[in-house]
Design a binder for these strands. Structure first.
Lengths: 252, 252
DNA sequence: AACCTGGATGAACAGTGTTCACCATACACG
DNA sequence: CGTGTATGGTGAACACTGTTCATCCAGGTT
């Protein structure tokens, strides 16, 4: 390893500080934190792991990020980046809400355990506000009375986050069962396994104490998570729409 | 302290073990964990704190509880204790669902950050199953098609947990602002403060980019958490009921 | 060439979950 | 009455965690 050629003049500056040392930045730290998160999950995500990922001392991180909590918040904010909001279309508010919820869940799925981070993030940051505004616009376009529009925004977010959070918990639970390495965000196969196990569990319950659970064991779990999520959103939308029907907007 | 009377025969066995040394049990550990949780919150709840609360070495806990995760799970299960479920009344399913959700949230509020623990707890344990069964019974009584009844149970739980979780996050955020000691689960006053701060924040947003937020700033946050929660539940119930109306139960 | 300065370093501190060799106490038995 | 045994608590240790701080080194400026 000692037979290095003398550095060419134009790369001298670069070679100086060891192997192409790119400066540490907030962005690079967040990026590294994401790859660590995807590999080890929320519970085991640590500043030291992030530092190791960057090949840097732990204390170096604190020059760019004041605490782990701040790093988590930054990761949360990153979620909103390049999230295009379509212009509100009053005739299509239901479909647009559906779409919004779906891409929201997709965003949360983009990184492992992201929902756990999102759930504790500050939901009214500058990055998140346009989304709330968008939801409000859609709800008002749909003819919801004002006091409902306000609550509805919260509600949709709570459901999206809560749903994804529980998915995340199931995934982690499943993962600590099969020690398999985690190349992708829990295969469809794993979810099928979970469902099958639960279905048998329900079916074999004592029918005298749990008649409904036994009877519905098949129909309850045959749906995929996607379908369950869509159904949940649909229920909320219908509930909201029922108010719009009661308080028809004065056609001015 | 040396002028002790000779112990009466029937209390001899009790006196033997020094200063009234009550044996360590799972229950006592769980109890202690709750008082620690209420004092320091979820993030700072540690095995050492629990041990200290009991005046005992940390390692002693591990004779009764295999890990911190198990302890958390036990705390979660304790939540269902003495939770009476009223007999399902088909004519009143909506009110009964409302009531169920309300007491669910109340239970979560009984201990600080309980929702954070509940959210990661296994929702199909022996203790929790009767509740799911109850919900299914109510939904079927309300005339919901079977495939919906299954999803609806999940949905209600997700919303209750998610809502309480976010309340818990807000409370913690508020608490680290005012250093005030925490004698009770965040006073009403604190919530009023949070609402007021947010309302002003919304009102002073640039109206060109956030017209709806500015316009709704007053109406959006004037409601208490209780009202917002009830509204959320009501929306879900209405959404569910809309399906029942579409698929009327065959009057046999 | 000397200086300054910004950013990275590594060691340290206090705290975490968990394990394990040790030991004391309370009971059963001879 | 004395001895053994076993249950269950102890304290020290390990491998971590988030965070801080004195130190130090490289880069650019004077």
């Amino acid at each position: 390893m000692s037979d290095e050629l003398p550095a060419l003049p134009w790369e001298r500056t670069r070679r100086r500080t060891g192997p192409a040392r790119i400066p540490l930045t907030r962005d690079r730290i967040i990026e590294a934190a994401y790859t660590v998160l995807d590999r080890v999950g929320y519970e085991k995500l640590s500043m030291r792991q992030v530092a190791a990922e960057l090949g840097v001392a732990v204390s170096a991180l604190y020059a760019h990020v004041s605490s782990k909590d701040e790093l988590l918040e930054l990761m949360y904010l990153r979620m909103f980046r390049d999230w295009e909001l379509p212009p509100p279309d009053p005739d299509n508010w239901r479909e647009q809400i559906r779409q919004y919820a779906r891409t929201g869940r997709t965003r949360l799925h983009e990184h492992r355990d992201m929902a756990r981070i999102a759930m504790t993030g500050f939901p009214f940051s500058a990055e998140a506000l346009p989304h709330l505004e968008q939801l409000l616009a859609l709800f008002r376009a749909g003819g919801l009375p004002d006091h409902l529009a306000g609550a509805a925004g919260d509600m949709i977010s709570t459901f999206i986050n809560g749903f994804a959070f529980e998915e995340s918990v199931w995934e982690d639970r499943q993962e600590e069962v099969d020690e398999s390495p985690r190349d992708q965000p829990v295969s469809e196969r794993s979810w099928a396994e979970i469902r099958e196990t639960l279905e048998r569990y329900f079916r074999e319950l004592p029918p005298d104490r749990f008649p409904n659970l036994v009877e519905l064991s098949d129909v309850m779990l045959q749906r995929t998570n996607d379908e369950r999520f869509d159904l949940g959103i649909e229920i909320i939308i219908r509930g909201l729409a029922s108010y719009a029907a009661e308080h028809p907007r004065p056609a001015e």
